[in-house]
């Protein structure tokens, strides 16, 4: 039981970080980036390429994160521009269509170039006992990286001038413009951050199980579930929801079976919408 819970926490932290990247972009202008999971896969494939070329793991990871980040920025500077020129429902719908198109494009390209591509990140070292449960080194590394990234993010958004500017755009775009904050520049930064998070999640998740080229949509849907449960646009909400869902996931996998976990997760998301339409910490 303790082991299942700890596994759930490890998984949940990963879910949380995954959700944060999606929820930030959503919070800043109402667009759900359906290409989000593909960005993670793209990052993973770059890590795998650089690693296979003989580079050290850390360097490969940095390259992968940078690639996902660059792809996200490119996305923002090109196809997302007309989307953000729209407002209200038009923006939401056009945003869904455009990012879905980009998702298909990236998935198609990666499948065509390397249909069997997969990233495995091997972390050496034996298990370490935590509360008497032997935890694999990979889980400890993944969780530490995730917690570190989450902490940096919370401080960045909460305690820096630029972070406050980002939150101001989330709360009132017109108000932000009136005090001299550029929503489009802010958005580019958030896209970059979101891409980097996608790349980071790709690396940490590949520490425990291989990340294959076909997993983009799975990642996007997990991120969506976390975002909905946590509250659209809330970073702490995403982490909380991630933890909750991670624990639900491992519990249902342990007691019912792996095949049912996605249904249970979706059920949890649906239940959240019914009980708390704004999510755990949504505005």
């Amino acid at each position: 039981m303790k082991a299942v819970l700890l596994d759930g926490i490890v998984l949940g932290l990963g879910f949380g970080l995954l959700g944060v990247g999606l929820t930030l972009v959503y919070g800043l202008g109402g667009v759900l980036n359906l290409a989000y999971g593909e960005l993670a896969v793209l990052g993973a494939m770059v890590v795998s390429l650089v690693k296979d070329a003989g580079a050290p793991l850390a360097l490969a990871a940095v390259a992968g994160v940078a690639a996902a980040m660059a792809a996200a920025v490119l996305l923002d500077l090109t196809v997302m521009r007309p989307v953000y020129r729209q407002s209200g429902e038009h923006r939401v719908l056009l945003g869904l269509l455009v990012t879905l198109g980009v998702a298909f494009l990236i998935e198609g390209l990666l499948n065509w170039r390397d249909p069997l591509g997969a990233l495995t990140v091997d972390i050496g070292g034996g298990p370490i006992g935590i509360f008497g449960v032997p935890m694999p080194m990979s889980s400890i590394w993944a969780s530490a990286i995730t917690l570190g990234a989450g902490a940096i993010l919370v401080v960045f958004l909460g305690a820096t001038t630029f972070g406050r500017a980002i939150r101001s755009v989330m709360q009132d775009e017109v108000g932000a413009r009136l005090v001299g904050i550029s929503p489009s520049f802010t958005r580019t930064v958030i896209f970059a951050l979101s891409g980097a998070l996608a790349g980071l999640v790709a690396v940490t998740s590949a520490m425990s199980s291989p990340l294959t080229v076909t997993q983009g949509f799975d990642l996007t849907s997990f991120a969506l579930i976390v975002t909905v449960v946590g509250g659209l646009g809330s970073v702490t909400g995403a982490f909380l929801a991630g933890l909750l869902l991670g624990i639900v996931d491992t519990l249902s996998a342990y007691y019912v079976g792996q095949y049912i976990t996605s249904v249970v997760l979706l059920g949890a998301a649906g239940l959240t919408i019914l009980i708390r339409p704004r999510g755990l910490l949504g505005r």
Partner: peptide
């Protein structure tokens, strides 16, 4: 008005001075 509703008075004023 277009204030930042979930932020404090202080933060709203600070954002006025941004950057």
């Amino acid at each position: 008005r277009h204030l930042f509703p979930a932020m404090t008075v202080k933060t709203n004023l600070m954002l006025g001075a941004y950057p």
